[in-house]
Design a protein around this nucleic acid. Structure first.
Lengths: 110, 110
DNA sequence: CTAGGTACATGGCATCACTATGTAGTCGTG
DNA sequence: CACGACTACATAGTGATGCCATGTACCTAG
């Protein structure tokens, strides 16, 4: 249903992943499903896995493996202190950006 | 002051430019100043001019030149019908996206 | 004549989402 | 047992777009 301009999503995916991980530890495949259920269109796995690799390289998450009885082992991600800081910074940046966009777009629908 | 993650801006610049042009016809250099005054950080001219070239190629604007007594001739942009439609579509997409992000970020404890 | 503001434009770079593809474990059904 | 479907992770190549640096040119002030 709701399918967005891919360019509008840039940078936001990291914010959304960190938000989901702030709620609870989770693994990639499950995060994809949560993103889709949350109203983000057809998020591809090929988008999410590299994004998770980036946040891991940045030190925003730690990882651990848990075997599954429904398939291969799951790679869980846990938000680190640095990740929590980054999340708050990005939420703040998002709100500031949203206000700016609101400022520019208010009053156009006359 | 407010400097944003360049990635978060992706795709939004077109929306902001169309919004400004919905208010009134304007030229590139002036649009850069209006964006800066509106709270968007240090937007580079090298970002805005290619963006304007894109919206022109897409048929969202028509252009005309007006001589200036303070410098070279100004290239004015006027929103077309297609541009107005595109603007409304992008504003709508933005609101839907903002709603989704809000959904994912609400409930983040401090 | 030089400096600085005005005004437009381009080229190379980096980031990041998308598509397509590959690997592999588990389960239900024929 | 073979097969397809679902689960689960990962990478390579491509494209869109914002950023920086740079170039051109006009005008006014000192």
């Amino acid at each position: 249903m709701s399918d967005f301009d891919p360019q509008m999503l840039k940078g936001l995916l990291t914010l959304l992943l960190l938000s989901l991980l702030a709620e609870r530890d989770d693994y990639g495949y499950s995060l994809v499903e949560r993103l889709r259920a949350g109203g983000l269109g057809e998020v591809a796995e090929g988008t999410v896995y590299p994004a998770l690799a980036r946040v891991e390289r940045s030190g925003y998450v730690a990882t651990y493996h848990v075997p599954s009885d429904r398939g291969p082992a799951r790679k869980y991600y846990r938000l680190s202190e640095a990740g929590r800081d980054e999340l708050h910074a990005r939420v703040d940046a998002w709100h500031r950006l949203a206000h700016v966009v609101e400022h520019f777009t208010k009053g156009i629908e006359l």
